[in-house]
């Protein structure tokens, strides 16, 4: 089942609000608003045409803002022969900066894969936990929280899974600055790499 077919099915079931098709470079996914995530994933798991009984993984990304290329007009010459500097117009905003969470689902019975995406604002990255739908989500959500700082509300035990408990910050954020020391262990580089 492709994402387009899945969207058709969802619209038939009356769950099409807040769900749209996300056309990726290789495969399509369902783009959902965060209020609808839990309800949609529960439907994908339980309803007969989908029966996505296996959660393959949950991933998160910190997306920077995306703009169209800047437009610069070349330098011109005015009527008196003087040089007129060209102007630069900033490209239009194509995508705002924010987080993206992706749930990869698999149906063992129906042999299909589905990806569900959700975009979260940078200031308040918060989305419902699905650890009660698939127990596998527990560690994946902890990892996403550990590395990106996305809060999964309703998670039974949301604490760091890879990094030490006392670690500060979330390293996969674009604005993260690596620490020079952690609990007495020096993490600095002694000397720059020798350039040939």
């Amino acid at each position: 089942m492709t994402a387009a077919e899945a969207l058709e099915q969802l619209k038939k079931a009356g769950l099409g609000d807040g769900v749209e098709l996300f056309a990726g470079p290789k495969d399509a996914a369902l783009l959902v608003t965060r209020e609808r995530v839990k309800q949609l994933l529960r439907h994908l798991r339980d309803s007969r045409p989908f029966s996505c009984d296996l959660l393959l993984m949950i991933t998160g990304t910190h997306m920077t803002e995306k703009r169209a290329p800047d437009k610069t007009t070349p330098d011109g010459v005015d009527v008196n022969g003087g040089v007129v500097k060209g102007t630069t117009v900033k490209g239009a905003l194509l995508r705002e900066a924010g987080f993206e969470v992706i749930w990869h689902l698999r149906s063992v019975a129906k042999h299909h894969l589905l990806a569900v995406k959700c975009r979260l604002p940078l200031a308040d990255p918060r989305v419902d936990s699905v650890a009660d739908l698939w127990p596998a989500a527990d560690w994946h959500e902890r990892e996403t929280w550990d590395l990106l700082g996305i809060t999964f509300t309703g998670h039974p035990n949301l604490r760091r899974i890879l990094l030490p408990e006392s670690w500060v910050g979330h390293p996969l954020r674009k604005d993260y600055v690596a620490p020079k020391e952690f609990e007495g262990i020096n993490l600095e580089v002694d000397a720059p790499w020798p350039t040939p």
Partner: peptide
């Protein structure tokens, strides 16, 4: 020996165990 492939972006990797 010195961090290896994590030398530049390994936020969590000790760049050589002779540091401790």
């Amino acid at each position: 020996v010195g961090g290896g492939p994590y030398w530049k972006h390994g936020y969590n990797v000790v760049k050589g165990i002779d540091k401790f």
